[in-house]
Design a protein around this nucleic acid. Structure first.
Length: 550
RNA sequence: GGCCCCGUGGUCAAGCGGUUAAGACAUCGCCCUUUCACGGCGGAGACAUGGGUUCGAUUCCCGUCGGGGUCACCA
């Protein structure tokens, strides 16, 4: 009885690994093409860190004519949720990112390197596990949970390294005959990797992002096939990334400590080691301390949050790109109108320490992105957001699309476009007063500033309507008339003059125009008044002034 | 606790033995033919700490402190 017999007994029907090596050949791609993957568990929830990974991976694949694929890691069936794959695919799609290969919904996939769901790859893992057993590099382990627990307690009380390794690995040297007999007797077992590593020996590994890292060799005989017949992450990672011909494993740095193990696994399987790129997770600051952003405590950890708030996907991607390569910001400054895809991303320039998530900065990126939108685009984006998250707003802007377009066009597309919207949820408040049905028919609490005497206000408004208001005026004429009005009523015509001798007048042209602004909009702060009046039109302006005088 | 990583203004960060230690966001002030949003100009604000090495350390080495990750039949 030898390893071959043992392997045959455990996996009688497994195909020879040559079958898979041939079925999934090396990809014919340019020399430096990057093949990456996003490999989430189907919990449905996509984390902001996961999105960042997708933004970077997509970019890298495009930049090198490579491939970006989606693999679902569902080997822990306890954690799985209903519709998990769809939710992942859709939330990534919400950010304009598509995969070249992989799952496209719960059951279907595209690409020639599938299946792309680990639970469908069981027989592949079995072949490679069988191969390892044949080579004497894996073995059945009959240890029960209780035995392992006892072992751990012993190790802990003796203050030595915990784990299944060396002399503690009871079953690694079990004679093949005995193992076969136990299996035939129906004893339960799992399959472990047989490590040849030595903790005393050091290895140096080069991580694309983190640089050289020194570790002790791995010597743990980790589980590769669990009791449910599915592989553990480590084993699946080696088999899948090899067979899918992934060149760059880009993942969060919680995995760095597994590098020695993964290296040994790849070597034992005869696989070429991919380039590892471990990036730092996104952090959150709380009580002066930084911690990993968490899905339980932080709403902004879920990518759905940005969608709900109405932060454009481009803005989120740009911000994430910023965290990825800080040189992006500089590039953006010199290439304000260039598509983000033109930026050359460099993996080795990624930060080695985690960045605190800064929503204020994100919103700044966002308002700049939005300021470049045409009024038509703005309208479309706002509408599609509002249809889903703000029915009232959707109805409001749809009632008269042409009018709404004019509203959205105020101070837009000129040299210095307006930058007061950073997310779609800001829009309602920014435009609602422009709609007569939301203004004329509603109670408005006019909050006048400096000039607050009711009769004085009425005088200003009445005089303006009777002597100066003409909707046909061009901007300069309109402007001059406001000055004329101010002068006629005893206010300073120019702010500068007023500032020189403030005691000379009760106020200046700005104070007068504020009266008009508040009367027309109910607010002290608005975009350009001339444009507002033009959009409102003669009738609305008169009605609004009438309402204010009452 | 073992192993590994990290430590430049409030935040994100350039820097890679000699710099007045960039830039962005935030903050403050001034200016910008009337507000606000922009835009312009300017201010305040940092190399965790102690030892080395060196003519010279933010940069290299060691210790200390601080932070993080990982030690599962979870990924």
């Amino acid at each position: 009885m030898n390893y071959k017999d043992l392997a045959d007994l455990i996996f009688p029907n497994a195909k020879d690994i040559e079958y898979y090596e041939k079925k999934y050949p090396e990809r014919s791609l340019p020399e430096d093409a990057i093949v990456t993957r996003f490999a989430p568990s189907p919990t449905g929830f996509v984390h902001i860190g996961g999105l960042m990974q997708c933004v970077i991976n997509r970019h890298l694949a495009d930049q090198t004519n490579g491939v970006f694929l989606l693999r679902i890691e569902d080997t822990d069936q306890k954690r799985e949720i209903e519709d998990g794959v769809n939710q992942i695919v859709n939330s990534i799609k919400d950010f304009g990112i598509e995969f070249d290969e992989g799952m496209i919904n719960e059951t279907e996939s595209k690409g020639n390197y599938g299946p792309y769901k680990q639970s469908d790859r069981k027989e592949i893992y079995e072949s490679y596990a069988k191969y390892l057993i044949e080579q004497g590099r894996a073995y059945p382990c009959f240890a029960t949970a209780e035995e392992l627990e006892k072992m751990r307690e012993k190790q802990e009380s003796a203050k030595i390294r915990t784990g299944y390794y060396g002399v503690w690995a009871t079953y690694r040297n079990l004679p093949v005959d005995e193992a076969i007999e136990k299996i035939k007797n129906g004893e339960k077992y799992i399959v472990r990797f047989k490590s040849m590593g030595n903790e005393e020996r050091k290895i140096r590994h080069h991580d694309v992002i983190k640089g050289n890292i020194d570790f002790p060799e791995n010597d743990q005989d980790i589980v590769i096939i669990k009791a449910d017949g599915l592989p553990t992450y480590h084993f699946a990672h080696a088999v899948d990334d090899h067979l899918m011909r992934v060149t760059h494993v880009i993942r969060s740095d919680e995995w760095v400590s597994s590098i020695p193990l993964h290296l040994e696994l790849f070597k034992a399987l005869g696989f070429k080691v991919p380039k590892y790129c471990h990036y730092a997770p996104i952090l959150k600051e709380e009580d002066g301390k930084k911690r990993k952003i968490s899905k339980r405590k932080d709403p902004e950890a879920a990518v759905s949050y940005y969608h709900e708030e109405g932060i454009p996907q481009e803005a989120v991607c740009e911000y994430l790109m910023n965290i990825g390569n800080s040189s992006f910001e500089l590039w953006r400054k010199t290439n304000p109108d260039e598509d983000m895809s033109k930026f050359k991303f460099e993996l080795n320039k990624m930060s080695v320490s985690g960045a605190v998530f800064d929503i204020v900065k994100l919103l700044d990126v966002s308002k700049n992105v939005i300021s470049k939108y045409s009024k038509e685009r703005l309208y479309d984006e706002v509408l599609s957001w509002a249809k889903r998250y703000d029915k009232f707003l959707a109805d409001l802007i749809q009632k008269d699309k042409d009018y709404s377009l004019k509203v959205f066009g105020i101070e837009r597309q000129n040299v210095k476009p307006r930058k007061d919207i950073s997310k779609w949820s800001d829009v309602k408040d920014a435009i609602i007063y422009m709609y007569d049905e939301e203004f004329l028919d509603k109670d408005i609490s006019y909050d006048y500033a400096k000039i607050s005497d009711k009769s004085e206000i009425n005088k200003i408004l009445t005089t303006y309507v009777e002597k100066y208001f003409n909707i046909e005026d061009d901007k300069q004429t309109w402007f001059d008339k406001i000055k004329d009005l101010s002068e006629e009523l005893g206010y300073a015509r120019e702010v500068k003059e007023y500032k020189k001798e403030p005691e000379k007048w009760p106020g200046h042209v700005g104070d007068v125009s504020t009266v008009l602004r508040v009367a027309l909009t109910g607010r002290q702060n608005t975009p350009d008044m001339y444009e507002i009046m033009q959009v409102l039109g003669k009738e609305s302006v008169l009605n609004r002034i009438k309402k204010a005088i009452k």
